[in-house]
Structures are given as C-alpha cells and as structure tokens.
Design a protein around this nucleic acid. Structure first.
Length: 862
RNA sequence: GGGUGCUUAGCUCAGUGGUAGAGCGUCUCGUUUACACCGAGAAUGUCGGGGGUUCGAAACCCUCAGCGCCCA
C-alpha cells in the first residue's frame, strides 16, 4: 500500500518534526505570506508583538504569548483579513547597559573609562553581534510576523517619535521637572520607576528609639535606624491621647543634637509601633509627603552610593548598612534603645536589575503627570471602547489606573533615548523638538528616558507616527493586545496612556487579552534557583514546535496560570503523531478531496455522523477561538481528532474501505481531514501544513480558507445511531474483558433486533473480533435495543459475569432511586422546567427496563 | 493593612442551577498490518469545613480555615 497524494508526494512512515519545520518556515517566508499590505481592501487585523528585550532569550512565557498571537493571526489570515503582526525588540535600558558594562568590565574597563559616546557605540556593536538572538528562536516557533516591519525601540523612527511625543506632552503640561523622592539604585546609580523595584521579604530589624529627655521624650520605631540622622520631625496622630499634649513642642534628636518638632498628621497609624513615627523627609516617600504638608526641612544624609554624608557626625563615610549597625550601637550605649526586634521580616525594595536594596532618594527628575492620561485610559475601558479579556481581570486594571502616581521618566543611564531638553547658561530649560536645534552654548540633559517611555509608544510609533503613514491609517488601532497579566500594570497601562494621548483619544487596542504565567508541573513559579525552568528550545528540539504550541494553547485558560511538564508536551507530540498516522492511513485507503462531496442522501450513517461531528467541532472551535478560549478549543479539537475520527470513524469504516463500495467514504474522509487540518493549523502550523499539502496538493494552509461549519451536516439521527453502535461495542468489549478473552481471540457472535444497528453487523464484528458462523449461543447480552449472542465454546465465567451484572444492577438501582425521588417530589414536579421533568421520566423508564433486563440475566445465570 | 483570586480524582486543571469531567499517572489484557509516540478494559471524588437560598447546589449567598498574587 502507498500513501501517495494527488501530487505524488508521500508521507514518511514516522513523523519527525525537525525534518519539516525549518523547511516550511522558509517556504512561508519566501512566499511572503506574512507581509501585510496597507493598501489592501481587506479588513485589517493587527497585533503588535510585545517586544522582547534585545538582551533576551526565548523563555517559555514568550512561547506561550507568541503561540496565542500566532493562533489568532493565522486564523484571521485564513478568514480573509489583512493581517499585520508586527515584531520587534525593546532596547531595555538598564538591562542592556548592565550586560555591556559587565562585558567590558571583564577586561577591567568601566563605562566611564570609555566615555559616553564610545560606550554607546559599544552597545550598538554588542546589539549587532549578540543582540536579538531571540528573533531566530521565535522563528523556530513558527511565528507569522511581518519581518519586513520589524522595529526596535531605539531605531531612527522611534527616536524621532520619542522626541515628538515628549515635546507634545510637555507642551500640554503633562511633563514637568521636580525634586521628589524617587527609588534610587546605589549600584546602577539611577532612578528607578516603581515597577523596576521588586519587593522581597527581608530579615531586617525593628528598633524603638527614645528621642528627647525626661518628660519631653517620645519613642519612635524604625527599620532604618541610620536615617534618624536626617529626621526633621516626629509625627503622631492628632487624636492620640498619649501624645496629644506634646503636639507642637520639640524634642531633642540624639546624635545630631538638633531640636525637632512633634507634628500631628492623620496618616500616622496609632496601632503601629509606638504610634509615633520619625519624619525623614529626604529619604522616605511617605515622610516626604508629610513633610510637604508641615514644612518639615529636607535633610540629605547620604550620597548617591548610599554612603552617609553631610551629617556632621562620626557616621559620615560609612555605608548605609554599616551605619545602621553603628547608629543602633551608639544609641544603645546612650540608653536610648527601648526595644529591638531582630529579625524583623518586612518588605524591602530591590533593584529589579541588580537586586541591590533600593534607597529612596530626594532628587531632581522629570515626571509625567499621569492623572489626565490615566483617566482617559480608564474611561476607554469603562466606556467599552477597549475590552479586557477575560473581563474578570479588569478590576486589576482599574485598581492601577485609578490610583496611579506620577511617573518618573528620567534615568541616570547612558543607553536610551536622551531627554530632549537643553539648559541655558542661567539654568533655563528648553525642550528641543525633532526639527529644532539647541541654542549655542546650551547643554543637553545628560539623562535618558525610562525604557517604558518609548515602549509605551509601541502601538502607534511602529506604524510611522508622527508621519501620517498608510500603515497608521490602515492598522491603527490594533485589534488585540495579547500579553501576560503580569505586565498589565506597567506596559499595557503606559501604552494606553501614551497612545490615547498621541492619537487624539483613540485607544491603541480594541481588546486586551491577558493570559497567565507558565509554571512548573506542580504549579510553582519557574526560577533558576529552583532549577525548574523549562527551556522552550530544548523541548522544540525534542518534541517539535507543534507539540510545544499545542501544549501551551491547551493549557491557556483565560487569565489563569498554567502548569507545564515535559510529560504534557510528550502527550501533544503523541497527538501530532496520531494525526500523521491517521492521514497516512487515510491516504493508503484512497481518501481524496477531488470533486464535490457526495449527496447526503447517498451516505451511510457513519459518514453522516462524522460530517455532523465535524460541523459541530468547526462551529465550536471557531466560537472558542474568537472568544480567546484556547484551552477549550484545543480540547475540542483533540477529542474530535482522536476519539471521534481515529478511534471510531476510522475503525467503524475499515470494513467499508476494504469493500468495493468505498468511493463516498473516501471522499468524506478526505473532506474531514482537509477541514480538520485547516482548523488545527493556527495551533499546529507545521504538521498541518505538511499533511494538508500532501493530502490535497494545495499550495499552503497559511493562505487557505478557514473552514466554515455546515449546518446542513448536523444530523442528530446519525449521531444517536452511532452512539448506539458505540454502546454495543463498549459493552461487548467489557464483557469480553471480564470473561478473560484475549483481545484478538475470535468468538462467534450475532446481532438481533434494531434493524438500523444490525445493518452495521459486519463493522461491529470487525471491531469486536466476532465470527460470522452458525453456533449455539452460550452468552447473551442486550444493549441499546440489540440482543448480542455469543459462543464462548460452552462455558462462561459465571462468577465474573455475575459480578459484572451486579455492578450494573447496583448502578441502575441507584439511578432509578434518584429519578424516583425527584419525580415523587411535589416541589420538583410543580417547579422544575418541563424538559427537565421529561428527561427524568425517560431516565426512570430506561433504568427500570435495565433493572428488569439485568435481573433476568442474573436469574438465567443460575 | 488595602485589593484580588484560588481550594473538584494521586498530580495539573476544566466544569456559572438538573445523574461529577479531561490530560497525565495507576492497574489488567494485547506482536488485532495507520499509529506501542498504540489499542481495549478498569479503579479512583462526603467537589476545603459549617450554615443558608432553591423542587434541586461543585456552581448562588453568608461564615470559618488554608493557599496564592498585586499594591502599600
């Protein structure tokens, strides 16, 4: 037998993913299938790829994110949309600078040795050599992105857009410069935004210190004792009876011997610590706010390295952590330490790039005034202009946009978009727009912009903004943003704000589709230290890209994390193999797509049934994918392909394919596989392409039509008939098994009763290994209105058969009782919907007759 | 502390009012010519505890317990 296609192509006897994947990806690229056409008349479907860091390698989270986007892109392309999936990378300010600093550091060179220009040149060189490795890894996954439109957040166009938007926002009063407390990394020597700070529970200390003397003393509690050197006040709650009398008086600040006031502020929690808190205006964001309200002076006690400076005490020159120990020791010596708790576990901010403990620092920085932008972003979702999927995650979005702090956008780095502001000789500042030049003698701000300031423009600058390009007109706003809920807060919200501002109020996406995180097989977070990180490349090598994709999509329930284990991917590989073999088998048996489908009236019930199941599957899968229900879509496809098609249709049809009367079934099977490959293609693009092209001789599934379900094929009659056949097969198999018959052992048997089932006797005999010959029955089964007589050559295992029947009887009795109780319940009869009552009555009838039949069978066994 | 989830078979998870499901794992049988990356059969659940609403609750409400995430 051969598995030759219309084109003469053949399928290898075993499926080997690596043999087809790169070849097919090259084929798609050279056919230009992924290149979008802005002048197309087709409706646009646009996705911008969340740009991975230029320093990044493909991790399993990218694989999930991109699989889902590719599913949507491929489905929409097949549906006839003009699809643009735009790829690119983020320049990732701190991360990239750190990588290159480390690289030159290994040669003993610091960036300061090189100087700014030379260092930036080095970074570009690094990018050219080693940056963007992730893009090639993405190709392994099969992403259908438009590579001709690849962007980088530091490319020329994006740079121009960044300057334009900075000026536009500044002119609108949305950008300002101010002295504020910001998160400062004393190692990276830069400001960090809130989202670049990771909070960890650290073992610190909690020390209560007495300020002042005698009557005029008060005890404050702190986890950062060294900052007391910069205290400007002590704050208590205005209603606190313990301290009410002291408000407005002063106490002596030890060590620095300064008198500081006791102030009252509602924000002080009476129950926390002693109810009195120290106010260190220049080194704590909350204290800063309080100090602004009460005119408390700002006393800076540390330099940018986190070293004590300018306190005029013996602690100057000490590192902040050494100073903490020394200050506590000294206070202890003075008898001022009232209580200590150590270790005291509390959340401490760490630099997300280098893990150094973040130091709140008073510093002059550029800020975005977010209130009006955040409100517009919130309104866009509240009004329904932008939908969040799943809807259940929208409270998290609102929680963020409704309570957003102004955004510090300046970074004391070299790698990034330099702030387009120049300072004059007298300190005057001027924003220098894209086509402007700074006046002579003015110097540009040395700082760069937060990376998110440019990636926040990813949804519109990538289309050529501020020019009025054809791409912008065609592809903005984008159709859907697919990303993990973990970056909802920083990236998604920032894109919402900046796009809505730049694009005259039009939000950047119609839908924000949020997926969860990929975790290990026990649901634990993947991390290097746990050693449970799954490498997508490794698993693609081992099981194929389709297997990885199918596994990830199958696990992607809306908005929830998914566990992933190697076994699951192996299971998906098995599924791919199953598809391969089923197609091979179909082709050996002459499955074809040539010519029209036979008239429904001419088909046997098994062909009608598989067409019906196919249509239902196509209908359901389409709705599920459109609703971003990837997991359920995959589940539906898996069970249709494996259970309905392979386990039942192919098995029930083997007799037909061996007969003369097979032409109609060959055409039906060809059709089912053709349609199945189309609907599976978005999730498993490689294997479906290979199988479909071989089977049909078609050019490519990438540009094939999406399969439409055919309502006329839905046929409940054939479905119930096949359900009956399945019951007969399953029950006889169970009987055979219980009787200890080997699966291959032939047994004489015949079917009596229901004409429509008996019509399929030869198919049933084939599946059940029953012989068609004369015999005297030694066992009789009754299933689905059919009597099955078997010859077990004289004796059957009565004990096993009795056990089986008694088990069935017990189950039937239980069902009967449940039904009787319901029907005997006046409330149920009065209030339950009619169709439910009918259903229960039918169940009652069925279980009653089952009990009768089983009881009789048991009696006959004696 | 504020917000927000979760608790269903050994594991990971579906299941938004009408007889509890899937994948993997487990056990038994099998060299049935598409497939052992397979086939057939089987076992396994007081749906976290308690209370309530309802004719009917895994699902809705209240409460308790445990776990998680985000923010402070």
């Amino acid at each position: 037998m051969s598995s030759t296609s219309p084109t003469g192509a053949e399928l290898a006897s075993t499926f080997s993913p690596v043999d087809i994947e790169s070849r097919l990806y090259e084929k798609w690229l050279s056919a230009d299938y992924f290149t979008a056409d802005a002048s197309s008349k087709k409706e646009a479907f646009t996705i911008v790829l969340p740009p991975p860091n230029v320093t990044g390698v493909l991790h399993i989270g990218h694989a999930l994110d991109q699989t889902l986007q590719d599913c949507l892109s491929r489905m929409k392309r097949m549906k006839g949309y003009e699809v643009l999936w735009l790829p690119g990378m983020d320049h990732a300010g701190i991360a990239t600078q750190n990588v290159v600093e480390k690289q030159i550091g290994s040669k003993g060179i610091s960036r300061h040795d090189l100087g700014r220009e030379a260092f930036i040149k080095k970074v570009w060189e690094w990018k050219a050599e080693s940056g963007g490795a992730i893009l090639d890894q993405m190709k392994r996954l099969g992403v259908s992105v438009d590579w001709t439109r690849e962007r980088f957040t530091m490319d020329e166009g994006m740079s121009k857009a960044v300057v334009s938007i900075f000026k536009k926002m500044h002119d609108a009063g949305l950008i300002y410069r101010a002295e504020r407390i910001i998160n400062w990394c004393p190692r990276c020597l830069t400001a960090l935004s809130d989202i670049e700070v990771d909070h960890q529970d650290d073992a610190g200390e909690f020390v209560q210190i007495r300020y002042g003397e005698g009557e005029q003393s008060i005890v404050v509690a702190t986890t950062r004792a060294e900052t007391m050197l910069g205290d400007g006040a002590v704050a208590v709650h205005p209603d606190d009876p313990r301290y009410k009398h002291m408000i407005g008086t002063e106490v002596l600040l030890p060590l620095v011997n300064r008198m500081i006031p006791i102030i009252a502020d509602e924000l002080v929690e009476q129950d926390f610590g002693t109810g009195a808190v120290k106010v260190t205006a220049a080194h704590d964001p909350n204290d800063f706010e309080m100090a602004m309200r009460h005119n408390v002076p700002f006393v800076v006690i540390m330099n940018e390295h986190g070293v004590m400076a300018g306190t005029g005490t013996e602690f100057d020159g000490m590192d902040r952590f050494d100073a903490r120990v020394a200050v506590v020791a000294k206070l202890k010596e003075m008898g001022r330490v009232v209580a200590e708790k150590r270790p005291y576990i509390h959340a401490v901010g760490h630099c997300s790039r280098c893990d150094t403990t973040v130091e709140p620092r008073l510093s002059k920085q550029w800020f975005v005034k977010v209130a009006p932008l955040a409100k517009a972003s919130a309104d866009a979702v509240r009004s329904g202009e932008v939908k969040i999927e799943p809807e259940a995650l929208s409270p998290r979005y609102f929680e963020w946009v409704d309570n957003m702090h102004d955004w510090c956008i300046s970074r004391q780095l070299w790698w990034g978009h330099r702030i387009p502001v120049c300072y004059g000789p007298n300190g005057e500042a001027k924003v220098v727009g894209p086509d402007e030049v700074a006046p002579d003698g003015w110097t540009q701000d040395p700082d760069v912009l937060d990376t998110w300031f440019s990636s926040g423009q990813w949804a519109f600058s990538t289309f050529g903004w501020p020019e009025k390009t054809a791409d912008l007109a065609k592809f903005y706003p984008t159709s859907v943003l697919v990303t993990g809920y973990d970056i909802l807060f920083f990236w998604v919200v920032r894109m919402m704000m900046m796009s809505t501002f730049a694009m005259d109020g039009v939000a950047p996406f119609k839908t924000i589709m949020l997926h969860g995180l990929v975790r290990d097989q026990f649901g634990k977070k993947m991390s290097k230290s746990r050693g449970n990180v799954i490498d997508p490349i490794e698993f693609m090598d081992k099981y194929g890209a389709d297997a990885l994709r199918f596994t990830l999509a199958r696990g992607a329930n809306p908005g929830t994390d998914q566990a992933l284990a190697e076994d699951w991917i192996g299971g998906s590989r098995n599924f791919a193999t199953k598809l391969w073999n089923a197609t091979r088998f179909a082709m050996m048996n002459g499955a074809t797509v040539a010519g029209p489908l036979p008239e429904v009236a001419s088909l046997n019930a098994i062909d009608l049934w598989i067409l019906s199941r196919l249509s239902e599957t196509l209908r359901d899968v389409d709705a599920l994918l459109e609703g971003y229900e990837f997991a359920r879509a995959c589940e539906t496809l898996y069970h249709f392909a494996w259970d309905d098609l392979c386990d039942w249709y192919l098995e029930l049809s083997k007799e037909t394919f061996a007969s003369e009367n097979k032409a109609a079934s060959q055409r039906v099977l060809g059709h089912v596989l053709d349609q199945l490959m189309r609907v599976l293609h978005p999730v498993m693009p490689f294997i479906t392409e290979e199988l479909w092209c071989t089977l049909t001789g078609g050019q490519s599934l990438v540009v094939a039509d999406w399969p439409e379900f055919n309502a006329a094929h839905i046929d409940k009659k054939s479905e119930s008939l096949v359900t009956g056949l399945q019951e007969v097969v399953t029950e006889v198999r169970r009987f055979r098994n219980d009787q200890g018959l080997k699966p291959s052992q032939k047994v004489p048997g015949r079917f009596i009763g229901s004409a429509e089932i008996v019509e399929y006797s030869s198919a049933l005999r084939f599946l059940l290994k029953l012989e068609d010959k004369d015999f005297t029955p030694s066992a009789t089964l009754e299933i689905a209105g059919v009597k099955i007589e078997l010859d077990l050559t004289g004796s059957i295992d009565v004990v096993a058969e009795r056990a089986r029947l008694e088990k069935d009887l017990a189950a039937a009795k239980k069902d009967l009782q449940t039904a009787e109780v319901k029907l005997g319940n006046a409330g149920f009869m009065a209030k339950a919907p009619a169709d439910v009552v009918v259903e229960i009555k039918e169940r009652l009838a069925k279980t009653s007759s089952d009990i009768e039949r089983i009881t009789a069978a048991l009696a006959a066994l004696k």
